[in-house]
Design a protein around this nucleic acid. Structure first.
Length: 496
RNA sequence: GGCCCGUUCGUCUAGUGGUCAGGACGUCAGGUUUUCAUCCUGGUAACAGCAGUUCGAUUCUGCUACGGGCUACCA
């Protein structure tokens, strides 16, 4: 293949959408694979709905995800003159005409058709209005739009779709559609055609929802005598109920995912797999891997339901793959980016923070979970508070009474402990002493873990002993004993 | 309503005219000297239906059903 040119054409009418990213990604992968060129083109012809902030969001979002393009950003809003010139050409050649039907009139007809369960068709009221007549009416102040004249003999339009094979649509299904509100305000279908031709786009890779626009665009292309690109219509990303992914039913903004602590590489990997895959059983792909492996031929026809569970799994996988330094970096840049949050988390020093991170890395599925996982590490040892019910565990054979015995045992072991204060040797000594005592492992280890963490689930007992150090460990065990004592007290009171 | 597109485990999917229809996520069970997580092992679970072609169809053809998209002076 030669001279591959693709385009990424977002419309800045909202925050960067997952669907936009997936389409952009496939364009990117295809172009990179074949050494093609990528155009980023803002489709901002709708002046009312296009917002500069959204444009910025889209550009930055794509960059964060590693999707790049060639040259700068093209804006359709800056190309009005070019469209105007082509609009005039079509008008002169009588391939387009002014239409004076009002929005209200057409809306009425549309409703009527709807009620009678008929297909609405533009009645072609203005199709034969001459340029001269149109000019007079415009001078009188009548509003008009510009419609494209569907060429007369009805015929079938065929186009090649790299995903679906050959698609056929008859021109009799097409209305004389509006291509511009006026010479200065061209509409989507028109701009796309002019731009794609002028930018020599070779492959139009876009969502399935554009299939029905394709014949219109081909007709326009033909009217100008321009080349027709190769099309590839991608399957849609779906909500759980199989409807098109929407913000009503799903989180669709890339910002939301990034803020929640999904990693760019996980998002990319996940999105790539929605509608495409390789023959082998590998599923973990970096952007570079994807460039190498990608092919439009292996893109699916059917839509793909967005599965949060799998994204979560992938994200956790990527988090686990990171070195501790990288993980720390990610956490600092996201959930602890504020000074206040940093201060709290660094009050026991950077080494402590880092060790704590190392203990929770493997259980982290998204970065937003980190603050909660880390919370107990930073509590005050002596005023640490949690429910005494945590000490009750059937399988471990503990209740609030026996847990006291257990904690006293641990306290004593710890106070007499002389060795190096690291998890491995702590474990050796504890296991030895437990064996001598005749207690069960869980009977000692479980309450000890609760005293250290105040959590139902947490990292392992010995790792916690190590990170807290002898002094803080003893304080926490003592605090645990207090909490148990109080529980026993209030239990007695309720009994009386 | 019209036009168009689609349909393999719950989800993402591999695959072939004759396969025990494979993998991943989820889920369930077990293990990793008894928390959770990680890791490992194992289990569960699918070719929408009906015809036709064929010695044989999940695979090819047709129909039906179901799902979806579009049907703007949005993109």
């Amino acid at each position: 293949m030669e001279n591959i040119v693709v385009r990424i054409p977002p419309s800045p009418t909202g925050l960067l959408h997952l669907g936009t990213v997936r389409t952009a990604l496939y364009n990117y992968l295809f172009a990179k694979k074949y050494g093609g060129k990528i155009i980023l083109r803002m489709e901002d012809t709708d002046r009312e709905r296009s917002v500069k902030e959204y444009e910025t969001d889209i550009i930055e979002g794509l960059q964060k995800l590693g999707i790049s393009w060639d040259n700068g950003v093209i804006r359709q809003s800056e190309r009005t003159e070019i469209y105007k010139k082509h609009l005039q050409q079509l008008l002169e050649e009588k391939k387009a005409y002014f239409c004076f039907c009002t929005h209200e009139e057409l809306e009425m007809l549309r409703d009527q058709a709807q009620q009678e369960k008929r297909a609405f068709r533009y009645p072609e009221t203005c199709r034969h209005i001459s340029t001269e007549e149109a000019k007079i009416r415009q001078e009188k102040g009548e509003k008009s739009v510009i419609r494209f004249r569907i060429p007369d003999p009805v015929r079938d339009i065929f186009f090649t779709d790299l995903v679906r094979g050959s698609v056929k649509i008859s021109t009799k299904e097409l209305d004389d559609f509006v291509i511009a509100k006026d010479l200065e305000t061209p509409l989507y279908n028109f701009c796309v055609v002019v731009d794609d031709a002028e930018m020599q786009v070779s492959h139009v890779i876009r969502g399935e929802d554009h299939i029905s626009n394709t014949p219109k665009q081909i007709l326009l292309l033909e009217a100008f005598g321009w080349n027709i690109p190769v099309y590839a219509h991608l399957p849609l990303i779906l909500n759980a109920d199989k409807s098109k992914l929407s913000k009503r039913k799903n989180k669709v903004s890339v910002d939301d995912y990034l803020q929640e602590g999904f990693l760019p590489e996980a998002l990319i990997n996940f999105l790539a797999l929605l509608g495409w895959n390789t023959q082998d059983e590998e599923e973990i792909f970096s952007l570079a891997d994807l460039v190498e492996k990608f092919s439009l031929e292996r893109v699916h026809k059917g839509g793909a339901v967005f599965d949060m569970e799998k994204l979560l799994w992938l994200n956790g996988y990527y988090i686990r793959q990171k070195s501790l330094e990288e993980f720390e970096q990610c956490v600092m840049n996201s959930v602890f980016s504020q000074t206040k949050e940093r201060e709290n988390v660094l009050k026991y020093g950077n080494d402590f923070f880092k060790k704590a991170l190392s203990l929770i890395q493997e259980r982290t599925k998204k970065l937003s979970e980190v603050p909660e996982f880390l919370r107990f590490f930073f509590e005050e040892d002596t005023s640490f508070s949690y429910s005494s019910d945590l000490y009750i565990h059937k399988k471990m054979g503990t209740d609030i009474h026996s847990a006291q015995e257990s904690l006293h045992f641990s306290l004593q072991v710890l106070q007499n402990y002389e060795g190096e204060y690291i998890a491995d040797s702590l474990k050796n000594v504890f296991m030895e002493r437990i064996l001598e005592s005749g207690f069960k492992n869980g009977f000692v280890l479980y309450p000890l873990r609760v005293a250290l963490s105040g959590e139902e689930f947490s990292p392992g007992t010995f790792e916690l002993l190590e990170i807290f150090g002898k002094e803080r460990s003893i304080k926490r065990i003592t605090r645990g004993l207090e909490i148990l004592q109080q529980a026993v007290f209030s239990l007695k009171n309720t009994e009386n």
